[in-house]
Computed example of a mutant assay.
Amino acid sequence: MTTTMKHAASQSDMKEDEWHARVELAALYRLTAMFGWDQLIYNHISVRVPGEPEAFLVNPFGIMFDEMRASDLTKVYSDGTAVGEKGYGVNEAGFFLHSVLHDARPDINCVMHFHSVEVAAVANHPQGLLPLCQEAMLNFDTISYHDFGGILVDDTERESLIEDLGQNNIMLLRNHGVAVVGRSVPATFNRAFNLDKACKIQVATLAQGAQPVQPEQAIVDSVIKTYSRLSGPDLGRLEFDALMRKLDRLDPSYRQ
């Protein structure tokens, strides 16, 4: 991976829409930590740079999610050139996964990858995610699965990642975790939140030992249809804006 060292990004250095993308992404990192989905300095979330479809913003490899600031984020191009990394570098597996998905799907502007315990547990379940609650049903028709092939640095896995994701929005990674994608930061967070809640409910339900109650397929289809109609292009915006206000009350430094 090629790197180009520059000073830390500042709001005066860039267009308004890139700075806005940085602030939202930094907020998403803080929220990921707040909800317990982070894993030390590992895992990664990216956002495509507005006006630069060949570039995305991602975390420098070494900064904790709960300390992420807009100016900390590294801009990475599809050829591997990293700008503004502040001496940390970029995680190789993070670059590989995110560059593959962004390149394959022009409609994707945000990619989340994490290994929360319950999500990883459900990814390992032979049946994967089950429609045991409303949160599971919301995205039930846009979930796919990818078999584990080792740490994501091998280019031979590129085509299988692209094929397995297809046009879906959630890809459960067997023996690993998940990749959640979306057209916006709020939409991606919305899917990640509902998935994590659904996986928690599934793990708790199956732990009871009894055969779980499952709704009829017609009910699942009805929930999917209703959710699709109600969500629209602003999926997740109301709750994400509310959560940004919460972050502002707790610690607004993510905006720096």
Rank of each mutant, 00 (worst) to 15 (best):
I63S: 05
Y227C: 13
E157Y: 02
G84V: 03
C199K: 03
G62N: 03
L165K: 11
E118T: 14
L206K: 06
R22L: 04
I201R: 10
S144Q: 07
F61A: 02
A207P: 07
V90A: 00
R105F: 07
C133R: 08
L250P: 07
E163L: 12
L250Y: 11
A120D: 04
I45G: 05
E16P: 00
G236S: 12
V119D: 07
M1K: 01
A192F: 09
S10I: 03
L40T: 14
R191V: 07
F189E: 13
I143Q: 09
T188L: 06
Q11Y: 04
G80V: 00
Y42W: 14
T3H: 07
H176M: 03
I41W: 03
C199G: 04
F193H: 15
E92R: 05
S144L: 09
F61N: 05
V122P: 05
N91K: 00
C199V: 09
K225T: 15
M64D: 15
Q127P: 02
F96V: 00
P252G: 10
M34T: 14
A55G: 03
T32Y: 06
K197W: 12
Q217I: 15
A210M: 13
K246I: 13
L138K: 14
E54T: 10
E52L: 06
D107I: 08
G177M: 03
L31N: 06
N190W: 12
V76L: 00
T74A: 06
M34C: 13
A93W: 00
I108Y: 10
M64R: 15
N175G: 00
D38G: 08
Y254I: 09
F65L: 06
G150Q: 10
Y42D: 07
G94C: 01
T188S: 10
G89S: 02
G36A: 08
E54G: 08
G36T: 08
D107M: 08
V90S: 01
A8I: 12
S184P: 07
T4D: 06
G177V: 09
S12T: 12
K246S: 13
A70H: 02
L250A: 15
V117I: 14
A136C: 09
P60Q: 02
T156E: 00
F193G: 04
R69L: 04
A93V: 01
Y145C: 09
E54Q: 12
E92I: 01
R69Y: 03
A82V: 03
L250H: 13
G84I: 01
R158I: 04
T4R: 08
D164E: 13
N194V: 06
Q217T: 15
T205L: 11
D155H: 11
E67M: 13
F140N: 09
L57V: 02
A8K: 11
Q127S: 13
L247M: 13
S12A: 15
Q214C: 08
Q167F: 11
F65T: 06
A123Y: 02
V220G: 05
L161H: 09
G84H: 01
P60F: 03
S160E: 15
D248E: 14
V203Q: 08
F140P: 05
P233C: 05
F96G: 01
K225M: 13
M64T: 14
C133S: 15
M34P: 03
F148E: 02
V223M: 08
E24Q: 15
K197H: 11
